[in-house]
Amino acid sequence: MKITGPARSPGQRKRDVLSRLERETDIWVATADGTGLPCLVPLWFVWHGEAVWLSTRITSPTGRNLRDGGRARLAFGDTRDVVLLDGDVTVFSSAGVPGPAAEALRAKTGWDPRGDSPSYAWFRIRPRAVEAWHEEHELRGRHLMRDGVWAV
């Protein structure tokens, strides 16, 4: 593929990231266990309250890794429009998840894990770092957030 367009400004990249967080339904969730064994799965999510919210079984490798490791890397599926989010994880039970976050996921996906198996837990991932780029010409300036603060 040939690069034909100019690089986006940092402000435009941030707007594009926030737009994807609102409109996308699936996000790749990368975690690792205590021995470093990686796990990568796509999950439904919602962007709510400046955080990514998702739910999976606490007994799954991803659920255990999110709970035990406290960190995750998130990404969207398009390799020509890269968005990477590194974040800190907080775990909630179905009974303890804030209602507005659970309702936001239900409204977006039609699924409410609170009414599913009791093994489902909720995970809030607050971004600490965000990178976004299209192709090589946008590698410079790809860091939009560092240490939980937007750079733009």
Rank of each mutant, 00 (worst) to 15 (best):
L37E: 08
P38Y: 02
C39H: 15
C39I: 01
L40F: 08
V41F: 03
V41R: 08
V41M: 10
P42N: 12
P42D: 09
L43I: 13
L43A: 14
W44M: 13
W44K: 06
W44Q: 13
V46K: 06
H48M: 02
E50R: 10
E50K: 15
V52N: 04
V52P: 06
L54V: 07
L54S: 08
L54K: 02
S55R: 04
S55F: 05
T56K: 00
T56W: 00
R57A: 05
I58C: 04
T59H: 01
T59N: 05
T59D: 14
T59V: 14
P61A: 14
P61K: 14
P61R: 15
T62H: 04
G63H: 06
R64C: 09
R64P: 08
N65K: 07
L66P: 13
L66C: 08
L66F: 12
R67G: 07
R67I: 00
D68A: 05
G69S: 10
G70N: 10
G70M: 02
G70Y: 13
G70C: 14
A72T: 11
R73E: 10
R73A: 15
L74H: 03
L74S: 07
A75M: 14
A75V: 01
F76L: 15
D78Q: 07
D78W: 00
D78F: 02
T79W: 11
T79R: 14
T79D: 14
T79G: 12
D81H: 05
V82F: 11
V83L: 13
V83N: 01
L84H: 14
L85H: 02
G87C: 02
G87E: 06
V89G: 11
T90C: 06
T90W: 00
V91W: 06
F92Y: 15
F92G: 02
F92W: 14
S93I: 03
S94L: 04
S94Q: 04
A95S: 12
A95L: 09
A95G: 02
A95D: 15
G96Y: 05
G96R: 04
V97A: 15
V97M: 09
V97H: 06
P98N: 00
G99N: 07
G99E: 15
G99Y: 05
G99K: 15
P100M: 08
A101F: 01
A102K: 07
A104S: 13
A104T: 03
A104L: 03
A104G: 07
L105Q: 06
R106V: 09
A107W: 09
K108F: 12
K108G: 12
K108C: 06
T109M: 15
T109D: 14
W111N: 03
P113N: 10
R114H: 07
R114W: 08
R114Q: 13
R114K: 11
R114Y: 07
R114L: 10
R114F: 12
G115Q: 10
G115H: 13
D116I: 03
P118I: 03
P118D: 14
S119R: 06
S119V: 13
Y120C: 00
A121W: 10
A121P: 05
W122T: 07
